[in-house]
Design a protein around this nucleic acid. Structure first.
Lengths: 232, 232
DNA sequence: CATATCAAGTGATCTAATCACTTAACGGGC
DNA sequence: GCCCGTTAAGTGATTAGATCACTTGATATG
C-alpha cells in the first residue's frame, strides 16, 4: 500500500549523471561529453538520457546548448536539497535541514495561531487524532502521519510560498532517506509535542505556539545529534 | 552576443502544458490526460512530450505515476506563469514571496556575520563592487547583479539547505517574470542598502546585519505595495 | 464478505535515422 | 596583412511506432 515507488531508469540516470559531474571534479561552465557518448557510457538510449538531462537542466545543474554541447550549471555546487528526482542525503545534511526548519517553522506556527480559520483547525485536529490511532502501525505510515502535522501547520500560516518551502523540506526522497529518518524517530513523544503545539494554536496563543514548535524541533535535533555520535 | 536562444520545441511545450493546467482550472492532485492523448493534442512525439513532462516534474508542477497517470503537483500554485492575464496574481504572489524572504533572510545575515570567512567576505565585497559598475548597464544584468548579493549572503550563513531555499526563492522563472520584477526595482537604493548590510557583516555585527537586512526587504516590499495600488 | 485474479489503461523504454544549430577553420576580397 | 563570408564537422533536437512494466478497478473465487 505505502510501497515506495521503484526508481525508474531515468531516475537512476539522473543520479549517476550528478555523480559523474561531482566525482569528475567538474566546475560550472565545464563542458560534458556529448549526448551520443553519454548514452553509450550509461548504456541507455537517447530519449531516456534526454529525460535525465532535462531534469538536470530544470534544476540548474546543467545547461543544454543546441549545437554546442552540455555544460555544468551554476546550481551544481548547491544542489543538496529537495529535488524530487535525486536521492541523496547525509546525516550531516539532516542537521542542516533541521536548522532550517527551526528557523522557519516556529514563526509559521505563530502565524497559524493568528490566521487559521476554525474549519482548518478542526481538520488539523482530526488529522492528529488519526495519527494517534496509527501509533502502532507500520513505521512508514507513522512517519508520514507525523510529518503531515508539520505540513498542515505550515499551510495554516496562509503563505503559499512558505508552505511550499516547508513542504519541500519535509518531503522524503526515496527509501534510502526514509530509512535514515526513521532511525531517529521517536513517534510517541513527537505526537505529544504536536498536541501541545496544536493546543496553543487553537487557543490563538501565537507566542506559545511559536515557542512550543521551536522546543519540539530542538528536541528532535538533540535526539539526532546524540544518536549520530554516541558519547565516547 | 546576448542573443536569446530560440526556444526549442520542448521549451514551448513546457509552457503550453503549464497553460493547459492553469486555464483548465486544475488543482493539485487532479489527473491530467494520458501521455498518448497529450502527444496528440500538442502534435509532438512521445520523447519530446516526455522531455517537457520531466522538466515540469523536476519543478514540482506535475507528478508522474507509472501505470497510474499524470497528476498536478503541489508547486503548481506558486509557479509563475507566462500569461499576461495573470499579472495581478503574480504581483500578489510577489508579496508572499517577499514575506517569505523577510522571515528567512535576516537571520541568515546574522549567521553570515558570525560564520563567514574573510576570504568569502572579500569575494562578496568584490561582487558588490562589480555590481556598482553595472549600475547603468542593461536592466536584466543589473537585476541579476543585485540578486547575487542575496544569494551570496545566504551562502555565507553556512547552511546549504537554507542557501538552496533562498536560491530557489530568488530564481527568476522566465522572461515574463523578469519583466514584472523589474517594474518594482529601484536599483540604486537597493545597492546602497546592500552596502550597509555587507558593512555590518564585515564588522561581525550580527544584530545589525539582521536588522539591516530586515529593513532592506521591508523597503522593497513597501515599494511594491505602493506601486501595485497607487493611492486612490 | 474478503481475497485472489485478471484485463484495460497508463507511463517507461527502445530503436535508429534525420533535422537544426553552433563553432572554428578556411579562403577570398579589401 | 586583415576582415568577413563560407563551409564542414560536431552537437543537440525531433521523429515514428512498437513493446515492456506498472497500477487499478472490475470480476471471479473462496
Amino acid at each position: 500500500m505505502s510501497e515506495v515507488a521503484r526508481p525508474t531508469l531515468s531516475d537512476a540516470l539522473t543520479e549517476r549523471m550528478l555523480e559523474l559531474i561531482r566525482t569528475g571534479g567538474h566546475r560550472p561552465g565545464d563542458r560534458l561529453p556529448s549526448t551520443r557518448e553519454l548514452s553509450q557510457r550509461f548504456a541507455v538510449t537517447t530519449p531516456t538520457l534526454r529525460e535525465a538531462l532535462r531534469r538536470l537542466e530544470a534544476t540548474g545543474a546543467i545547461e543544454l546548448r543546441h549545437g554546442s554541447g552540455i555544460y555544468v550549471g551554476a546550481a551544481i555546487e548547491r544542489l543538496v536539497l529537495p529535488n524530487p528526482n535525486m536521492r541523496e542525503i547525509h546525516a550531516a545534511q539532516l542537521l542542516e535541514l533541521l536548522d532550517a526548519r527551526i528557523l522557519i517553522e516556529p514563526p509559521l506556527a505563530a502565524l497559524a495561531a493568528e490566521h487559521a480559520g476554525s474549519e482548518e483547525l478542526a481538520a488539523l485536529r482530526q488529522t492528529l487524532d488519526e495519527a494517534a490511532r496509527h501509533l502502532r502501525g507500520e513505521d512508514a505510515e507513522l512517519h508520514d502521519a507525523n510529518m503531515t502535522f508539520h505540513r498542515a501547520t505550515a499551510r495554516l500560516a496562509g503563505n503559499s510560498v512558505l508552505h511550499e518551502v516547508v513542504d519541500s523540506l519535509l518531503t522524503v526522497h526515496g527509501p534510502e532517506q526514509r530509512e535514515i529518518l526513521q532511525i531517529f524517530d521517536d513517534r510517541r513523544r513527537d505526537h505529544e509535542e504536536h498536541l501541545e503545539i496544536l493546543a496553543a494554536i487553537e487557543a490563538r496563543d501565537a507566542a506559545r505556539a511559536e515557542q512550543r514548535m521551536r522546543a519540539h524541533l530542538a528536541d528532535v535535533k538533540t535526539v539526532i545529534e546524540h544518536r549520530m555520535q554516541p558519547p565516547e
